[in-house]
Amino acid sequence: MSDSAKPNRPIYDLDMLRTLVMVADCGSFTTAAARLHSTQSTVSQKVRRLEEMVGQQLLDRSNREVHPTDAGETLLGYARHLLAVSNQLTEAMSGGITVTVRIGLPDDFVAGKTMQALAAFNRKNPKVKLEITGGLSRDLMTTYDRGELDLVLVKQRRHSREAVACQPERIDWLDSAQFPCFVQDPIPLVTFPPRGLYRDDMINAIEAMGRNWRIGFTSSSLAGIQEAVANGLGVSLLPHRVVTAAHRILGAEEGFKPITVFEAAIFHRPTADSMVKALAQILSDILRSEAD
């Protein structure tokens, strides 16, 4: 058969296949666009062009979460295979491929044994690039939900959201060892901003004791909170791991009950690659070691 007599066959563009896989894995055009560092309209156009090419609908958009159709599931199987072969070819030709893992950590984990463990992992896996972001748990989860982080460790109320791994978090009431504030009336409080973790629990506990309170210091910085308490600007509620010699732990003698409603939780997507899962295991081991 001459070339002119052969039927036209679609040539599958890897970029379009990668886009389809990302949308299917994320269940959302918006999240997929964020992970691909693209716009939602561009992602939608690529999927539509692919659907026009094969002559079938590949994604069911009727529900809030996007799901592949039967034809989409078939194409996704081949797409994943082609993308894997493409990655293998790139690795073979370049002598190795660099994988980037984007990690989000609360400020109290951006130090000490966590950084030591991540650095050790990086030394053993030099082709893995770690991008680590520190911040408030609520901000990290928002960034994760937008698809801009691959792995996060955050603080949350226990069992509020299903996680890959979690561990109850020990929280302490802290006062200054040198300049105690608990005896003041009203009690000055050192807190994270409104909606920040622990803030409402602090206020509710103080009111339950029949004590008056005022906000003495507010900061988004964990270091700022630690220093404010140490220097006598107020009482605060913080993870046990950040207690220093400049702090005094308040307990039953002062009328405080233990706070047991928080946990440290680890999240990654079900489709996460082996490096993300290995890093999640490292973080999980750190949480368990703290509980022992």
Rank of each mutant, 00 (worst) to 15 (best):
F192V: 13
G55C: 07
F29T: 10
D107S: 14
G251W: 07
H240S: 14
D107I: 01
F121A: 02
T74C: 03
A79N: 12
M1Y: 14
L283D: 00
A117W: 05
L20F: 12
I266K: 03
P68M: 02
H240G: 03
T98Y: 09
V235G: 02
A177C: 09
F262W: 15
I103K: 05
A264D: 11
G112N: 05
L130F: 06
W173I: 07
L238Q: 07
P270R: 08
T19L: 10
D13P: 13
R49A: 11
P106F: 03
D15Y: 12
N212K: 15
L283M: 07
L174Q: 02
Q178K: 14
P180R: 10
S274V: 10
S176D: 04
P7W: 05
G196F: 06
C166I: 00
G216S: 09
L189F: 02
R80M: 04
P270W: 07
L151R: 04
L283C: 05
A177M: 09
N231W: 11
S2M: 11
A278G: 00
E73Y: 06
L283Y: 02
K155I: 15
V85D: 10
F267R: 04
D70T: 14
V261G: 05
H159A: 11
P188W: 14
W173H: 07
R102T: 12
N125R: 07
V243F: 00
R80I: 04
L140A: 02
F29V: 06
R18F: 09
L50G: 01
E91F: 01
R157H: 13
E51D: 01
G147V: 06
A33E: 01
L151M: 03
I132K: 03
A111P: 01
T31D: 09
T31F: 09
C181G: 01
H67W: 07
G134V: 05
T114C: 00
